[in-house]
Amino acid sequence: MIDKRVDSAAQAVADIFDGATVMIGGFGEAGSPIELIHALIDLGAKALTVVNNNTGSGHVGLAALIENHQVARMVCSYPRTANSTVFPDLYRRGEIELELVPQGTLAERIRAGGAGIPAFYTATSVGTPLGEGKEVRSFDGRDYVLEYGLKADFALLKCARADRYGNLVFNKTARNFGPIMAMAAGTTIVQASALMELGEIDPEVVVTPGIFVNRVVTVANPALESVLVNDGRAYP
């Protein structure tokens, strides 16, 4: 029997180890798996490399994970956001590393990592500081830089609906990095707002097929980052 359901967020993240690379879904708060991130804070794994488009806001979710000194290195495209002070403060003090990646290159590196493609060429960043030091090759008269596929030990994602096979459907623009991170991680852990019976998700509308997913935990009413931030909440 294939049953990827686990009982709790704590159980879902229990084997995340010190030094692991963890991809965390979300673009701003849309798609941010707050309950899984908070379970990772409870677990306390340290020296993590975290891949996310941003660095969280306020003192909850990803920002709280960073504030708790569990993240040694961020791979992201836009570490500045409204209400984002945790990462900038640590970065200015030299207490956290940053690998800045153009957003489309970040997405494509993750997609490539999940698709078994070790590297690819792209025109993005040619002739800019972010292209410096990278191998350049010309195709049909245009220059491209070499970028490497990105893989992770774990992915933490949020979706709207899932079944026990791990088939996923997302909510609107919360889909963002979810489907590609699910492909690029060795162990993909998903919090679903609703758990469906097999067959209840029409195969024509499955966004991420279950083969890319390892664990599903149901979080029926997930917290919203903006609500927690507006309430001045901090985790833990």
């Binding site: 701003g28 849309a30 997609r111």
Partner: peptide, 28 residues
């Protein structure tokens, strides 16, 4: 609005009839 329906500036937007959602690799 829906906090999970936002634009690149992270502000709430709507989707027109005929709109489509997709993941980041498709978008880029």
């Amino acid at each position: 609005g829906d906090p999970e329906l936002i634009n690149a500036g992270k502000r709430p937007v709507t989707a027109i009839p005929g709109a489509a959602y997709f993941h980041h690799a498709d978008s880029f």
